[in-house]
Amino acid sequence: MSAIVTKYVAEHELSKDMSNEELSQHAPELLELLSDKLKRDKGRQRFQKGYNFSREQAFVLVPDQRICRSRSRVLPKEGGDEAGEVNICQVSDIIPDGETIEKVKAIGKALTITSPNPVATTSRLSRLRRELRKLNAPEKIISATLDDKTTCASNKIQKERRVQRENEGIDFPDHFSLESVKERLDGYDVSNAPNLQALADVMIMLCIRPAEIKDLRISNGSVTGYSKNREQQDNPRVFRSLERDEERAKLLLTWIQGAISSGQLRDPGVRGVKWFNTFLKKDRFLPETGKPLLPSYLRKLGAVFAVISNGAKNLSEAMTIASQALRHSPDNHASPAQNYTIVNYRKRGQPYDQGEVIKIFDEN
């Protein structure tokens, strides 16, 4: 991989002083040369360590194919036979073209064909719309990617999955009970370097998505820098957490962020990393049910623990606390918090069969 990058840099005279737009022109060829995930990861490392490219520049040169690039053989014109390749990363090439709508529809069709299910399709089409909006594409072009049939199918599947998750719930070991997590949070000495356990506990404390661990900010009773706020004004959300002391929560968060910035901790928000999953799958963390915790489950534990720590007195208050802890928009009246509170809550030492899914909503 190093030899490939070394040769490519020399032949094309690449420099870290080049703009992202210039660098992006090399992405298709580099993705062909670096044909699998391991090669692409090593290639990015070579660009950064060998030629001082920034992490952002490395990903411009070698994009993450799972989100940036989707290829398929599609018919460019109605009834045509010639096959073509579709690449979301190159969507900027089609905006000035007079046949933009048809080309965007072709990209949408390609994403639909190559997706394993309607849920993945809607996610990819949503990504495509974001890319188009970045390019200030007209709403007429963006709307060409909408597919009501696929959206309905996706909603149906997600509803079925939600019901299944609600029926099963998420089990957690005593090590990750509210009592254990709070004891560790209270005992952490921020003058020492944090470990993976501290990272997991802080992620639970603030219901953090791995992707937002480095950018989240707490100030004056508000939280900013959350990942669902992408490409929008950074509207502050109300601070709500199982750790009710805002200053302590802020101290622990900056402690973890400082360790990631200095390299003492790895960033769990890097796409495709497995080390954090491996940490959570250790035998001592396995619930009696045998199903290991996933990084995404920590956010759900945090939402339920926040409801309990803040002493919700009724369904309405519980829903408000959970939504605030999850940093959901107060304008979203679809009650999305119910999808995150599917935890079989029990106190430390309480038998697993006595755990119950926290109900913060009813049929009405």
Rank of each mutant, 00 (worst) to 15 (best):
191 S>T: 14
246 E>P: 03
230 R>C: 12
28 P>A: 09
21 E>A: 13
165 R>M: 12
283 D>A: 12
57 Q>R: 01
13 E>S: 14
70 S>L: 10
100 T>R: 02
132 L>G: 08
46 R>G: 07
189 D>A: 05
252 L>Q: 05
175 H>R: 05
330 P>H: 10
151 T>P: 02
39 K>V: 04
327 R>T: 07
113 I>W: 08
317 E>Q: 13
199 L>M: 05
164 Q>K: 15
23 L>E: 02
47 F>K: 00
262 S>C: 07
22 E>C: 10
230 R>S: 14
292 P>K: 04
194 P>R: 07
85 E>V: 12
280 L>Y: 09
28 P>D: 07
2 S>L: 12
291 K>M: 11
104 V>P: 10
214 K>A: 06
216 L>C: 00
172 F>C: 01
83 A>V: 12
318 A>I: 03
115 S>Y: 06
333 H>L: 10
254 T>V: 09
138 P>F: 06
349 G>K: 00
15 S>E: 01
279 F>A: 05
339 N>P: 06
228 K>S: 10
54 S>I: 11
19 S>W: 13
128 L>D: 00
270 V>G: 07
248 R>G: 12
348 R>Q: 15
360 I>L: 01
223 V>L: 02
66 R>F: 13
326 L>D: 01
308 I>F: 02
207 C>L: 02
325 A>D: 03
264 Q>G: 04
6 T>L: 11
291 K>E: 15
7 K>S: 13
161 R>C: 06
88 I>D: 00
69 R>K: 08
354 Q>W: 12
15 S>P: 02
256 I>P: 02
170 I>W: 00
96 P>A: 01
